[in-house]
Amino acid sequence: MTDRRNELATNLAAVEERISSACAAAGRKREEVTLIVVTKTYPASDVRLLHELGVRNVAENRDQDAAPKAEACSDLDLSWHFVGQLQTNKVRSVASYADVVQSVDRLKLVGALSSAAVKAERELGCLIQVALDADAGTRGERGGVAPDGIDELAAAVAEAPGLRLDGLMTVAPLAGPFAGRQRAAFERMMEFSSSLRAGHPAANMVSAGMSADLEEAVGAGATHVRVGTAVLGVRPRLG
Rank of each mutant, 00 (worst) to 15 (best):
D3M: 12
R5G: 12
L8D: 00
L8Y: 11
T10K: 12
A13V: 07
A13M: 09
I19A: 01
I19Y: 03
S20T: 10
S20P: 11
S21F: 04
A22D: 01
R30W: 11
R30N: 12
E31T: 09
V38S: 15
T39A: 07
T41W: 14
T41L: 15
L50Q: 05
H51C: 08
V55W: 01
N57P: 01
V58H: 02
R62D: 01
R62I: 08
Q64M: 09
P68M: 07
C73M: 00
L86H: 09
Q87C: 06
N89F: 04
K90Y: 10
R92Q: 09
R92M: 10
S96Q: 13
D99M: 07
V100F: 09
Q102N: 13
Q102T: 09
V104I: 14
L107T: 12
V110S: 00
A112F: 03
S115M: 14
A117C: 12
V118H: 05
E121F: 11
R122V: 08
L124M: 10
L127T: 07
I128L: 07
I128E: 05
L132V: 05
D133M: 06
A134K: 03
D135I: 09
R139V: 15
R142D: 15
G144F: 04
G149I: 09
E152C: 14
E152A: 15
R164K: 15
L165P: 02
L165W: 08
L168H: 00
L174Y: 14
F178D: 04
E187H: 01
M189N: 05
E191P: 08
F192S: 10
S195W: 00
R197D: 09
P201Q: 11
P201H: 06
A203W: 03
E216R: 02
V218Y: 00
T223S: 10
V225G: 04
R226E: 00
L232S: 06
L232C: 02
R235H: 04
P236I: 13
P236T: 11
R237V: 14
L238P: 12
